[in-house]
Simulated scan of single mutants.
Amino acid sequence: MRLPRRAAAATALPLLALGLAACSSSPTTANTAALSASEPRRIVSLSPTATEDLFAIGAGGQVVAVDKDSDYPANAPRTTLDPITPSAEAILRYNPDLVVVSEDSNGLVAALKKVGVTVMIEPAANTLNDAYTQIEQLGKATGHASGADSTVATMKSEIRAAVQQAGTSHADLTYYWELDPTYYSATSATFIGQIAGLFGLKNIADKVDKAADGGYPQLSSEYIVQSSPSIVFLADTVCCGATAKSVAARPGWASVQAVKVDDVAGLNDDIASRWGPRLPQLVEAIAAAVEKAPAQR
């Protein structure tokens, strides 16, 4: 099944369509080679998450080009490079000695290997530990191990604090996670679902998920209204202009618990679809919605 752009983006941001459940963040052969290579001076990133990771650990000065979707941080050298159907020829114009990607698309690894360019594959994270491991891998590969360790330590501390403050036992609260206006969602089995699961929330998408959905089922408006989730998370505020007001105006949605108690949480699409150093901000946004819900029930 092919996911819509926003749903695919959220699975990995690697708009990598399904198969994410089978992905692993363990070092691939390409990663192992990168880890043992000399410190790179010219890095090209074709992964928005990897771009954020590289700048967070202190390797930003070595990055000479990033893909068209790498919009953070603002000073990243953004180009027209396509991360989905990458062109080895276009990448080589930047004379890289390390290229970081989220998957081996379009025969890129083989093409770059022929000319002696190391490729590091950092696929979609399945767990928080995967996200931390990727940052540490990039730190070792770029000569910024201490920066990576510091970044991971800060992320863990901030996430731990947010979860502790909001609590982890909220089985009485249900939620709907919206990836786009056509009601694609994410189940508890996805990376997104695991993040929300830190608070013990129940996901309304779990009941209707099928194997073919890969954890990203398309719900119906009727089902969402009938389920009446306690919290609605909107991960389509930037792409599609979703707001609490627009959600409340949908036919029948005025009866949804989250709408009635004003617990519709607008999220930054990019933060909600990446697994890098801004993850604590996503966890904090979820925590805020969780803390708000019990007081209004």
Rank of each mutant, 00 (worst) to 15 (best):
residue 79 T to D: 06
residue 86 P to H: 03
residue 96 P to I: 08
residue 54 L to Y: 03
residue 62 Q to E: 09
residue 104 D to V: 05
residue 118 T to I: 04
residue 106 N to H: 11
residue 80 T to N: 15
residue 86 P to N: 04
residue 55 F to V: 01
residue 100 V to E: 00
residue 117 V to P: 10
residue 61 G to H: 12
residue 95 N to H: 15
residue 67 D to L: 01
residue 64 V to S: 08
residue 76 A to Q: 01
residue 104 D to Y: 03
residue 71 D to E: 11
residue 76 A to C: 03
residue 72 Y to A: 11
residue 56 A to L: 10
residue 115 V to N: 14
residue 98 L to R: 02
residue 57 I to M: 09
residue 110 A to C: 05
residue 118 T to M: 01
residue 120 M to F: 13
residue 61 G to S: 14
residue 72 Y to S: 12
residue 73 P to K: 06
residue 55 F to L: 02
residue 126 N to V: 06
residue 122 E to C: 00
residue 84 I to D: 09
residue 72 Y to G: 04
residue 93 R to K: 14
residue 101 V to T: 13
residue 68 K to E: 12
residue 62 Q to A: 15
residue 61 G to E: 14
residue 119 V to C: 04
residue 63 V to N: 06
residue 126 N to K: 13
residue 109 V to E: 05
residue 73 P to V: 09
residue 64 V to W: 05
residue 60 G to T: 07
residue 61 G to I: 13
residue 90 A to G: 09
residue 56 A to M: 11
residue 54 L to W: 02
residue 115 V to T: 15
residue 113 K to Q: 13
residue 59 A to Q: 11
residue 59 A to E: 07
residue 118 T to N: 09
residue 91 I to F: 07
residue 90 A to V: 08
residue 100 V to M: 04
residue 117 V to Q: 11
residue 53 D to C: 07
residue 68 K to V: 14
residue 78 R to L: 10
residue 60 G to C: 09
residue 69 D to V: 10
residue 73 P to M: 06
residue 75 N to C: 05
residue 116 G to I: 07
residue 125 A to C: 05
residue 89 E to Y: 12
residue 105 S to T: 12
residue 112 L to W: 05
residue 62 Q to L: 08
residue 81 L to G: 01
residue 73 P to N: 09
residue 102 S to Y: 02
residue 66 V to W: 03
residue 64 V to T: 08
residue 65 A to R: 05
residue 78 R to T: 11
residue 102 S to F: 04
residue 124 A to P: 12
residue 74 A to C: 04
residue 108 L to E: 03
residue 78 R to K: 15
